[in-house]
Write a protein that binds this DNA or RNA. Structure first.
Lengths: 127, 127
DNA sequence: TTACTATATACGCATATCCGGATATAAAAA
DNA sequence: TTTTTATATCCGGATATGCGTATATAGTAA
């Protein structure tokens, strides 16, 4: 366990595709939360956003296919985080997105929700 | 002539829709140019981006339907510009987008192209 | 009026995207 | 081993999106 994982990346990360990724609300909210929180497992995101598990997994898979996020397995959990080797424009845009949307619904409500999800998950799971 | 025009706005401007708008390259390049140049007519954008007239018009129509841009008719030309009453998050995001993409292709090449298109159009048309 | 220019829209079609539900995979626990 | 938990993926089907071509609309000029 604790293995870093690369991705297949079928689709290149150009600006238009980057914005198409952010053009679906579940992915957008997840991207903002990952920028805020650094690393989250699928179950924490699923609970914080109130979406079904297949839906969450599918959208995280899209983010990974385009190279926006990478994954790390730790036991039965898979942790997602933004890649730190993104192009400068993508890194800067993400920072702006997270800042400019932080106080807008539904993003403003996602932050406390993910904090509760993290607290509960990590206390129940001895990490 | 010189009449301000409002739009029907069938679709509300939420963050996900905003990013979906920017998720198509022609619209993204047009939005960046409008942010840079302030106001452009359809023929200037069409020439600068090298796309067909119906395609340019259709994509500008999408930007207008969602309320990102507004139009002003002046004779036979229709000038598009970003609305100045956008939500703060949309205004701030657009500023960041224009800044972070300015030096990336194809946006970096669009700037001189639109300048030439503006110069030619406005000299040929006595404005 | 007619002709010309600029812009918008309609049509038909191809492809992309999204969803819910079922199922597959993999690790952990019993 | 079996069971449970976490995550990923497959299957249909519905809807959205984008394109080229043709045409409509509106203003200008002759």
């Amino acid at each position: 366990m604790m293995q870093a994982a690369a991705s297949a990346a079928h689709a290149r990360l150009d600006p238009a595709r980057f914005f198409r990724l952010l053009g679906e609300e579940t992915r957008l909210r997840a991207a903002v939360l990952l920028h805020q929180q650094g690393e989250l497992c699928v179950c924490e995101l699923t609970e914080a956003l109130g979406v079904s598990q297949p839906k969450m997994s599918r959208h995280l898979g899209h983010l990974r296919d385009v190279g926006l996020v990478e994954t790390r397995r730790s036991g039965q959990w898979i942790h997602y985080r933004l890649r730190n080797d993104l192009p400068a424009w993508a890194h800067d845009l993400l920072t702006g997105v997270a800042r400019d949307l932080a106080d807008e619904p539904p993003f403003s409500g996602d932050t406390p929700r993910v904090r509760r999800a993290i607290a509960r998950h990590r206390s129940e799971c001895e990490q």
